[in-house]
């Protein structure tokens, strides 16, 4: 089984071309905890999240200053392969995105198969079942594993994507608003799943939903930008309870109590 790891972010600045998107983030993401990132739209929390597995580099002109240290290794060191980073830091996206050409089984096996890890059928079966059980989807799909993944409901698709992500056994799991395309029942199922997953993984979740942050996370970080055009900053990060009951910063309090944003 994979071992959860901590992530140390220091003096991280993110740019898109000449646009300074996020400024000077310092935080420690603790292992086996759920860290929620909240803040208004455009404040850079998704950009920050994507910098944790070098996904933001896919945007043309994006660059990074500072360091992200995953268990002692700076993932932005020059000799680091971003592909290898991503196999250790998995990601689940806002829109459920199962591969449309693949069955449910193949979707879960995709991470291993696409990396051409040769594997015997029983071993693969075991991983697929374990991952689907891990994503609370096994009971619903065990009799139709060969059907297309796109035939599932939105909530099931998102849990399939989570199963796909945990099948490669990452150390850290990033989730970019994983429930914003889902109904409340599916959302609740995913939140329950997140709480179960933290036993094995370090989880970072971006959300717009304050209740979700308070329900599902242990640590909450609040991102804000002073005004549009300025870079986003990490205003405050603390125990979720503290952030929601007794935040140190006025802006945080205004945001979590719904006075703006």
């Amino acid at each position: 089984m994979s071992s959860a790891k901590s992530v140390e972010v220091s003096d991280l600045d993110l740019y898109y071309g000449s646009f300074h998107a996020v400024q000077n983030v310092n935080m420690t993401i603790q292992p086996n905890k759920v860290t929620a990132l909240i803040g208004s739209s455009g404040c850079g929390k998704s950009t920050f999240l994507r910098s944790l597995n070098r996904m933001h580099e896919l945007v043309h002109g994006a660059r990074v200053e500072g360091s992200v240290i995953l268990e002692g290794q700076d993932i932005y060191a020059p000799d680091v392969d971003p592909v290898a980073v991503r196999s250790q830091v998995g990601m689940v996206f806002q829109q459920p995105n199962p591969f449309p050409t693949m069955s449910i089984y193949e979707n879960v096996a995709a991470g291993l198969r696409l990396n051409s890890r040769r594997m015997k059928k029983p071993a693969m079966d075991e991983i697929v079942e374990r991952s689907l059980r891990g994503a609370n989807l096994w009971e619903e799909v065990k009799n139709r594993l060969e059907r297309a993944g796109s035939g599932l409901s939105g909530g099931q698709q998102q849990r399939l994507c989570i199963a796909r992500a945990i099948a490669v056994e990452p150390e850290v799991l990033l989730m970019d608003e994983p429930c914003s395309a889902l109904d409340p029942v599916a959302t609740l199922a995913i939140e329950e799943l997140i709480r179960e997953l933290k036993v094995n993984y370090t989880i970072v979740i971006v959300t717009h939903n304050m209740q979700q942050a308070s329900r599902a996370s242990d640590i909450t970080g609040f991102f804000n930008l002073e005004e549009s055009g300025k870079p986003g900053r990490l205003v405050e990060i603390d125990e979720t309870e503290t952030i929601f009951s007794n935040p140190a910063n006025k802006a945080t309090e205004d945001y979590v109590t719904g006075r703006f944003g």
């Binding site: 996904m55 991503r86 998995g90 996206f93 995709a110 991470g111 990396n115």
Partner: peptide
């Protein structure tokens, strides 16, 4: 992106 995020 889903594929990249799997380390492919």
């Amino acid at each position: 992106e889903a594929s990249y995020a799997l380390g492919v």
